[in-house]
Computed example of a mutant assay.
Amino acid sequence: MTPDDKICYCYDVPLRKLLSFAKRERPRHPSQLSECLGAGTGCGWCIPTLCRIAQWAETGEEFWHALQPEDYAAQRETYRRERRPRHTFDPPPPAPPTEPALSAGAAFAVLEHTAPDGVHWDLLISLPGQERLATWRLRHNPLVEPAPMPAERIADHRRRYLEYEGPLEGGRGMVRRLEDGGATVLEAADERVRVRLAGRALRGVAELTRRGPEWTFRMVCE
């Protein structure tokens, strides 16, 4: 099995994301891995493997090379046929998007900004009627941790930052583009912004909500 193979089939969670999450968070209990895109909260088949990933985070003992993706998938199908419905469940199939889009030709980018005071991540989105990019500073890398996290609305950026990476003027450090792609703006209100992102790895609906001066970012992967 390679890092790109799926561990949780219910929510399409690959091994790579689970390893990154476990290495960063050092979960005290395997159930904490469910915070990574909901892994293990569907049919339950992957829970034993999540336990092994949590153990790997403590011991560094790699186990996945011996797993064959085809056998893993076939064993899951057997498990699902024989499971007890009252004790396990499968998530409902995702409903096709029906909400109207405000803008289907938007774009977004995620920049890793290494500044003199540390590293943060900037999410830039082109919103309808705005020449510049609406920008939020995120506490964590959303490609690794799409779970809810604090965000800070900062000054709008020029559109060139959708493609630019390199040093910044005025000794402000440098930026590296981690992700970019098309976007569909679903909602753009003062208190909430919802955008469907279509990047290489970051895909789904990004929700940015505000309570008072505080913003929260949440990624709902599709």
Rank of each mutant, 00 (worst) to 15 (best):
P3Y: 00
Y11I: 10
Y11D: 12
V13L: 01
V13M: 02
L15N: 03
R16Y: 08
R16W: 07
L19P: 00
R26Q: 15
H29N: 13
H29D: 14
L33M: 09
A39D: 04
A39N: 02
W45Y: 15
W45R: 00
T49F: 09
L50C: 04
E62I: 05
E62A: 12
W64L: 11
H65G: 14
H65M: 13
P69S: 09
P69R: 00
T78N: 05
R81V: 09
R84Q: 14
A95Q: 12
P97D: 15
T98D: 14
T98I: 09
E99T: 13
P100Q: 03
P100W: 03
A101Q: 09
A104V: 13
A107H: 04
A107I: 04
A109Y: 03
E112Y: 11
H113M: 07
T114P: 00
A115F: 10
G118A: 09
V119C: 11
W121D: 04
R132N: 15
R139G: 09
H140K: 13
H140L: 15
L143W: 02
V144N: 13
V144G: 11
P148H: 05
A151W: 07
L162Q: 00
G166H: 01
V175Q: 06
E179C: 04
G181I: 04
L186N: 01
L186A: 02
R194D: 06
V195G: 03
R196F: 05
L197T: 00
A198S: 13
G199N: 04
G199F: 10
G199C: 10
L202I: 00
G212E: 10
W215G: 01
M219I: 06
M219F: 08
M219Q: 04
C221M: 11
